[in-house]
Design a protein around this nucleic acid. Structure first.
Length: 677
DNA sequence: GAGCACTGC
């Protein structure tokens, strides 16, 4: 369950207080409040909820609302989920990684608990027949929607520049169509800001009195959450165009796909759909993530159109021809499970110890590629979570209990042995919130300044992890002063999240902590030199699969792993060169991300003596053993033969080639169009 | 020299 329409259907006075000003996090809370009210019971008694940092349930709870992630955690300690007699999986069409795993687990549970468990899967758009087939032809219930009709109009040909096309279309609607807000779907913050500026210019250029007033509002994830409330209640604090408030004022809302499902804006009558979305995609053969602009799916296109028909009949203007929609768009969005690294999920499933389940043949609604599973096994082996036969180790079991990616869990366990657990907890928590810490490109600031524009520490040049640690330590010394965050350009929301995560991880680690964390915290918060070293060593163990070696007389790096890549340190890194201008010989990285080039983001210097045992382990890696004979090393013949022979030897379903081609073609078309303007 | 769609355990 994520933030939901229901949020917006409540009156202001029923809203609970908002600690951290985080709206999304509390939406289940609001729904559950309504249910408790209607049943006339106290929240937390018969009706309760559980979300990441909060459990409001008791022994008397009969209806429990929880997120898919929390339910997965629960099945870790009770795989039969015996405390529940009915499980409703909501929003299944969103196909989150967690929901997909739950669908597989539910299929097994239904078999095991046929007599005393009922499962209901609800979905706005998911293909009912497919799910029914998956669950051995279970019955399908159709509940008709309550949307008003939406007229869909396609452009006759693809635009040369979709930004300009959005601009023109929006102005056209404003001049010609009767009142009603306009929702424009763009791909990212950058384009949104550009379009907002252009729209404002154009609107100001319109003849006074020729049409109604207008206000242009951006809507994307990095806006402060307070903004959503203002948007909701029509309070116009972004009044830059016309100061006169509604009713005689049209809102232009320029949004990312956050407005597709997560947020509903009342009053939208017109939708402009660019047909594109930004999507993160993991490539298991390179271990690299990329954030690409891709064509949306038919499901997404229809979801966007539906946003026009929530209050009255509306219109959706698609900036692409209907033939493109018909022939080029995928039917459904690629589920997250086919776009992510699976190390965490595979470890989780292995730790469940289901005797009747073979992880590599796990029954997914849409199975991930075998390449992706193979990649996950190799990653897990290198960090000692599974042994050479693919069985989970006791270390792996502890790792699975931590709500972290396996590399970070491994780092914590190693740090526990090295006496720097407190520091590692901080680094790991900081990394969990990393993207929401720094407010991004500060255009108003001096661009020539390097790296850390403020008084923030520099990690002694040893790397970004050390810097993250130092930042949190400084914040700690101000007794978590929120003004300090603002002064240093750190997002308050992000820092508070880090504090929550750190606390949660500490509690889980307490069970296996070598030295009481109390003691560690009592020690001075200033980390000493030996602790920095131990911390880097722990990171090296955790990131065994994310190592890189500098090339000779060159500051480029080569990743050390099953598939070597040429990469560079991301320019935002605080890693420093030595007196000869050279970067460290060995580094670990948090993430490989392909943007203009393949970059290592969040880099930390490590020593060769720590790297050698890992290289030895890499040499012993045997995928055939790891997968119980399911996968085998590609035979070393020619490149072409090689790839065809591996595909045929694999029994699991692969991504259909056709789909990959479609995605690639769409990306190329988009890039071509962007470069034209 | 570069850039961050969206969730959330």
């Amino acid at each position: 369950m994520t933030s939901d329409e229901v949020v917006w259907q409540f009156k202001e006075e029923t809203l609970p207080c908002r600690e951290h000003f985080s709206l999304e996090k509390h939406s289940p809370k609001i729904i559950v409040l309504r249910v408790a009210q209607e049943l006339g019971v106290q929240l937390g008694e018969e009706v309760g909820y559980a979300i990441r940092f909060e459990d409001r349930t008791s022994a008397s709870t009969r209806i429990k609302y929880l997120t898919d992630g929390v339910l997965l955690r629960e099945s870790l300690s009770n795989p039969e989920l015996s405390q529940y007699s009915v499980i409703i999986l909501d929003e299944a069409h969103e196909r989150s990684l967690n929901t997909d795993i739950l669908l597989g687990l539910m299929k097994r549970l239904i078999r095991l608990r046929a007599s005393n468990l009922k499962v209901l899967i609800t979905s706005a758009t998911l293909d009912g027949d497919k799910v029914s087939r998956f669950f051995s032809s279970c019955p399908i219930l159709n509940v008709p929607g309550k949307l008003f009709p939406v007229e869909i109009l396609h452009s006759s040909e693809p635009p040369k520049s979709y930004l300009d096309a959005c601009l023109k279309m929006a102005i056209d609607i404003h001049v010609k169509e009767p009142e009603g807000d306009i929702l424009i779907f763009m791909t990212g913050q950058d384009d949104i800001e550009k379009l907002v500026r252009k729209l404002e210019e154009r609107i100001q250029g319109l003849e006074e009195g020729s049409c109604m007033d207008a206000i242009v509002l951006p809507l994307h994830g990095s806006l402060p959450p307070e903004f959503y409330w203002l948007l909701k209640f029509g309070l116009l604090f972004f009044v830059r165009v016309f100061s006169r408030p509604p009713p005689n004022c049209r809102r232009f809302i320029v949004a990312t796909n956050i407005a597709e499902t997560s947020l509903t804006v009342d009053g939208v009558v017109y939708v402009i759909d660019s047909g594109y979305v930004k999507q993160r995609h993991y490539n298991p053969s390179t271990g690299m993530y990329s954030l690409d602009v891709v064509q949306i799916s038919k499901v997404q296109a229809n979801q966007r159109a539906g946003r026009a028909g929530r209050t009255r009949p509306g219109k959706c203007f698609r900036l692409y021809p209907s033939i493109v929609y018909q022939d080029d768009f995928l039917d459904v969005t690629i589920p997250e499970i086919q776009r992510s690294s699976l190390a965490g999920s595979v470890l989780y499933l292995k730790s469940l110890d289901l005797p009747d389940i073979d992880i590599l043949k796990f029954d997914f609604l849409d199975p991930p590629s075998s390449e992706s599973l193979e990649d996950a096994l190799k990653q897990l082996f290198l960090i000692d979570a599974i042994d050479e036969h693919g069985s989970i180790t006791s270390l792996g079991r502890t790792m699975a209990e931590l709500p972290l990616e396996p590399s970070l869990s491994r780092t914590l366990l190693e740090a526990n042995d090295c006496g720097c657990l407190s520091q590692a907890l901080t680094v790991v928590a900081m990394l969990s919130a990393e993207t929401s810490l720094l407010p991004g490109p500060s255009k108003s600031f001096d661009k020539k300044r390097k790296h850390t524009p403020s008084n923030l520490p520099d990690g002694y040049g040893l790397g970004d992890h050390i810097q993250l640690l130092q930042i949190y330590e400084q914040w700690h010394q101000t007794e978590y002063n929120l003004d300090w965050c603002k002064d240093n350009n750190l997002q308050v929301r992000g820092m508070l999240f880090v504090k929550d995560v750190r606390k949660q991880l500490s509690q889980i680690m307490l069970r296996s902590a070598k030295e009481s964390l109390e003691v560690q915290t009592m020690k001075r918060w200033r980390t000493n030199e030996q602790e920095y070293k131990n911390l880097r060593k722990s990171l090296c163990v955790g990131y065994a699969n994310q190592l890189a070696e500098r090339m000779l007389r060159h500051n480029g790096y080569q990743t050390l792993g099953f598939k070597s890549q040429l990469v560079q340190v991301h320019p935002s890194s605080v890693l420093k060169t030595d007196d000869d201008g050279m970067l460290p010989n060995y580094v670990v990285y948090h993430e490989l991300i392909a943007t203009s080039r393949p970059y290592m983001r969040n880099v930390c210097a490590v020593e060769m003596s720590w790297v050698l045992p890992i290289i030895r382990k890499l040499e012993n890696l045997n995928i055939k053993k790891l997968s119980g004979g399911r996968f085998s090393e590609p035979e070393k013949v020619s490149e072409v033969e090689n790839s065809s022979s591996t595909t045929t030897s694999i029994s699991l379903a692969q991504l259909p080639d056709d789909r990959d081609n479609k995605i690639q073609a769409a990306r190329e078309r988009f890039l071509a169009r962007k470069s034209i303007k």
